[in-house]
């Protein structure tokens, strides 16, 4: 399934946050969106998944969702968004309960996704008992349970410490090798972007416009061995962004 954004513009009150953004996420492709803080990255992602209406332009999906997909466009949030009063298994169960799946099959799906994310031993733990990395794994398990066609990831690793981030990044790469999901991955971390992205969409500071799209034609599996090339790419993206980031840093914000 493909996600196509066409001429998206958006404003909050009197402030333009996004201006004429167009790009597409192809089948099995990870597209990273980077940009200085406050450039509307998260707003763009909310528009892409239908959580917010764009002022202008439209978000389109093309092609059929894979067989049995319960929720084609599925989010992974920066703050994990787990219900603190439900156990790990209960949090996964939440997103299956509205689909009229019989209890036995639901339990089988939960067991399956928890084992795929190495969480089987934590099925009955509450979120407050888990580390940040574990919480995000639960959120990933929850996303897998609905068989998404396109994952919309809003800075999924930003709330984690750098070691956990490395571990989860490896998990994500391994997961992608197996499932070949499409993803729109918003981040401010350029190292994440060059490790995961097939393409990197660089946004300008507010109002966010596409500054440049950087293609990375290197298989994900080879990237850990070709760090020198990645380093060069990362520097190139940073060169594009540097001035924008500096200006954005000096701006007075009046948008919440």
């Amino acid at each position: 399934m493909q996600l196509i954004l066409q001429g998206i513009s958006h404003r909050y009150g009197g402030t333009n946050v996004l201006e004429d953004i167009s790009f597409a996420v192809g089948d099995g492709e990870i597209v990273c969106i980077v940009g200085p803080s406050g450039c509307g990255k998260s707003t763009l992602l909310r528009i892409a998944g239908g959580l917010e209406r764009p002022g202008e332009g439209e978000a389109l999906i093309a092609g059929k969702a894979p067989e049995g997909s319960l929720n084609p466009l599925t989010y992974i949030f920066q703050d994990f968004a787990l219900l603190p009063w439900r156990t790990v298994a209960g949090n996964v169960s939440l997103v299956l309960e509205d689909h009229g799946i019989e209890t036995k099959r639901r339990r089988a799906i939960i067991d399956d996704v928890l084992s795929r994310t190495n969480l089987s031993d934590f099925a009955h733990a509450l979120p407050r008992q888990l580390s940040g990395g574990m919480k995000q794994r639960v959120a990933i398990a929850r996303a897998l349970a609905v068989k998404p066609a396109i994952m919309l990831m809003d800075e999924p690793l930003s709330a984690l410490d750098s070691q956990t981030r490395e571990l989860l990044m490896d998990d994500l790469v391994a997961l992608w090798q197996r499932e070949r999901f499409s993803a729109c991955y918003v981040t401010h971390n350029l190292a994440e972007a060059v490790r995961l992205g097939r393409r990197i969409v660089v946004l300008s500071r507010r109002p966010g416009r596409i500054r440049e799209v950087v293609d990375i034609d290197m298989p994900l599996a080879e990237r850990p061995e070709r760090l020198v090339e990645l380093e060069k790419l990362q520097r190139r993206v940073w060169e594009i962004m540097r001035e924008e980031a500096r200006e954005a840093d000096r701006e007075i914000s009046d948008v919440a």
Partner: peptide
Amino acid sequence: RNLIRMGQSFGLSWLS
């Protein structure tokens, strides 16, 4: 609000 948005993003019904 993020929890509510999460519920909406997974297509949960209003009542749920």
